[in-house]
Design a protein around this nucleic acid. Structure first.
Lengths: 225, 225
DNA sequence: AGAAAAGTTTAAGAAAAGTTAAAGATTAAA
DNA sequence: TTTAATCTTTAACTTTTCTTAAACTTTTCT
């Protein structure tokens, strides 16, 4: 389902848009401040972002800049500002379209569809990001984010995390991990996987999420329930 | 066969749905309260859940949250509430679809088929779960649940339980258990299996289900009828 | 009933599995 | 080519699980 993030501080307008779009089969998340919007953007993956410019916590412009530093997701700005210079500046900043308040919901929907169509026709196959608790993994960018912050992992470490996040309930034996991540038959020293797990955990420790990787004695490893 | 859980406190409606779906070749389980629904969900595995929101014992919302904490099974909400805000919240809470009462059974069937189709096309390999009375065993997650609660077992203990649950009527000799679980010929001390059985029973004792493992004198062990 | 066989339980040492730090080997980058 | 990063292996250490032994209980057989 298409996921849309609505960043709008006025609850009435936010809910109105949310209800309308939900009815139209979109999956909406709501943020009521710039900082909340940034948090949601960092932690989840959206197909489109609706953004009010006049929001507390972080200016709309700053949020666009933040979004553009990490993603090409379409951004439609909702603004009371009508002055042309603002519009121009916005579009050059990174917004893909704008709508001046008040606007008709039908028009909003039409513009959303336009942006999504652009997105769909252009570019690469969108690789959905994986989520697990407050971990986020963007496979395409090979970026691993904890609580929105990037954590540097080596190739094998990322491979192991990716495997875990694809099947968050499965227990993986060391053999399974090795064959899946190394793409070879299992003949490395048994301990190698252990060492990598240990290294991943120690990197995770800084984020307080090292307990997410659990040891299943006699079997292997898995993500926490 | 496709298994559907119906959580609906009105017996007339519950039975009506159950009979209709049974006729359409679904395997239905009925719950008449939120708590009963949770119990059945924890103990068995369903392909889809129909959930009335206005149920005694546990609110529908809380039940959805509980379900979502453990599973991606499709949930269709049956509700008398027509207010849009409720629908929005529901869908964002974790429901996959909703139907406002009164509804046609044909529409319900259509929506069930849509959800099952979605499920089938998407994602992860279905991990078959084993069931025996109020025991549930998820082989992929290596999780053993008694009355919905996880019970920690060591690798060998889990191996023994798995063997029993695969053939719930068979009597296993100690030699069979050893060769099946240890993957070796039988030359350990005879008593080893006994000790493991004893340890399993003592862990089960906390759940009140230790009597499920029965001793067959002179032969071995089996699950209770 | 009494003896023998089979099963149960507890406890303790042995064995297996896992963790971590560190050093050497390998690979990639500057 | 030199430097840096990553990977594998080794080894000492910790934790969990397994096996054995021994004392005790229940069932079966004579």
């Amino acid at each position: 389902m298409t996921r849309i993030l609505i960043v709008e501080d006025d609850p009435t307008i936010n809910n109105l848009i949310c209800e309308y779009l939900t009815e139209k089969d979109f999956d909406c998340s709501q943020a009521f401040s710039g900082t909340e919007g940034r948090l949601l953007f960092d932690m989840e993956t959206f197909d489109l972002i609706l953004l009010d410019l006049m929001i507390p916590g972080l200016t709309g412009e700053a949020l666009i800049a933040h979004i553009r530093s990490a993603s090409q997701v379409p951004v439609i700005v909702l603004s009371a500002k009508a002055a042309l210079e603002d519009k121009v500046q916005l579009l050059s900043t990174g917004a893909d379209d704008y709508l001046t308040k008040p606007f008709e919901l039908e028009e909003l929907l039409a513009r959303i569809r336009v942006q999504l169509r652009h997105k769909a026709s252009g570019s690469s196959p969108a690789s959905a990001a994986l989520h697990y608790k407050d971990w986020k993994l963007d496979e395409q960018a090979r970026a691993f984010l904890v609580k929105g912050e990037r954590l540097e992992l080596t190739a094998h470490e990322l491979g192991i995390i990716t495997l875990f996040m694809k099947y968050p309930k499965k227990v993986f034996t060391k053999q399974e991990i090795f064959e899946s991540v190394w793409h070879q038959d299992y003949f490395v020293e048994d301990k190698t996987i252990n060492v990598h797990i240990s290294n991943i955990r120690s990197k995770l420790k800084e984020t307080g999420t090292d307990s997410y990787i659990q040891t299943v004695w006699g079997i292997g490893f898995k993500l926490k329930e």
